[in-house]
Design a protein around this nucleic acid. Structure first.
Lengths: 221, 221
DNA sequence: GTTTTAACTTACCCATGGGTAAGATATCAA
DNA sequence: TTGATATCTTACCCATGGGTAAGTTAAAAC
């Protein structure tokens, strides 16, 4: 995996010449800011830091965003859009509740390895204004409800052991959300490995099917 | 459980009269600060906020702590002490790896519902100085290693399905750590309910033992 | 009672950082 | 070429909040 946003920097060149399209530059600001927010947190990232990395000065940023918070909010919006996309896919897919949950874990885990996705669960939404906070909380609630409904479906169709769906959803969401706290794009673990093992262990559990015998061990691929 | 630190405030009276023991007052500052850090985050909690809640003035706080960071660090220390305590219990206990993991989840989940425990995983350790950060990271690494070793034990003794112990540990730790993000002491879910269901579903999985775990299950529904 | 000392207050300092005013300069349309 | 406009810079404002200096009050020691 050679080119990973950090090292070779495509978007850092966006401000090389003066007149180019604003859309690209706005995007570059956003990408850079998201990166910094993940590196140092939103609060510890100053507008100057963002400007510096783009090799411009602070006030230039205000041509593309009204204020710092708007940048943060936009990160949330892009991230939640990624999540909603995959959620719609899964919901429309046929299958038992358990399969949906499994697909959810897999897809969601992958999103948690993408910067904008990571922002959604790692950044502190308490830094948002009340209105923006309400919007973001709404997105998050929607995700939680979606997962919870998959679990309830599974209990209803018999693919999932009866349990408190609310707690189960928190458990799964927690495991996956936490990825954005420790995942490193350049790290040893690939997104694919993480996503697939998470999907398996969270649905099937750690426990060996029964006792210690290899009695009816299924083909483990 | 009627008296829950928030409503009836025992430690908020610590500064009622002037000369009392410093230890109690220091503890009151700590408790109040931890509470505020969880309510508003460390960064958004000013020393004035802490003082105000204790009905004293900001400089008075500096009789008990050298600076704001020392308060934060102390929260981490008390929290990690709670965790280590339970970890030692479990490690010394006999049992298969899976049982240890289960016990870990149960105990750790309970710690995550206690304010100082919540601080450990919810507060942003990036606010600490490099030295303090190293100390805290060290605590956290120890916890992770402990969990990972339980899992490896389980794989070795046959109680746990072979898997990548590192990823499995992240998954479990994530689910449990996330509790401190959503748990509300006054909320509908009790610590006991959460801890026991977490211990069960994370070890046994969601899937119903027989019938649906497999991909080739024909799932009508 | 008087002194000593810890506990606390009032009043302040100043670094950080979000945001703006106003001017400079390159780009684009004509 | 030239004016108009978006782009970007230099220089600044000021609110917030951690931290301190120095004095005040009350408790405790004698």
């Amino acid at each position: 995996m050679p080119r990973n946003a950090t090292a070779s920097a495509p978007h850092l060149k966006a401000f090389a010449d003066r007149r180019r399209d604003p859309a690209t530059k706005r995007g570059a600001v956003l990408k850079t800011a998201a990166q910094l927010f993940l590196e140092k947190s939103y609060a510890r990232t100053s507008m100057n830091d963002v400007a510096e990395r783009l090799k411009i000065t602070k006030p230039a940023l205000y041509h593309y965003f009204r204020n710092k918070e708007e940048i943060l909010l936009e990160c949330y919006r892009l991230g939640t859009a990624l999540i909603e996309e995959t959620l719609n896919d899964i919901a429309s897919r046929c299958g038992a509740g358990l399969e949906k949950v499994e697909a959810f874990i897999y897809s969601y885990a992958n999103v948690m390895t993408v910067n904008f996705g990571r922002c959604v669960m790692r950044l502190d939404d308490g830094d948002l204004s009340p209105e923006a906070l309400a919007e973001v909380r709404n997105y998050k609630r929607k995700i939680d409800r979606r997962l919870r409904s998959f679990i309830q479906e599974g209990i209803a169709d018999g693919s999932i052991t009866p349990c408190d769906a609310k707690i189960a959803a928190f458990s799964i969401a927690g495991a996956v959300n936490w990825i954005c706290q420790w995942y490193e794009p350049e790290g040893a673990l690939s997104a694919e490995e993480i996503a697939s093992q998470f999907a398996r262990t969270l649905t099937q559990g750690l426990a060996r099917p029964n006792g210690s015998g290899l009695v009816h061990k299924e083909s483990k691929s």
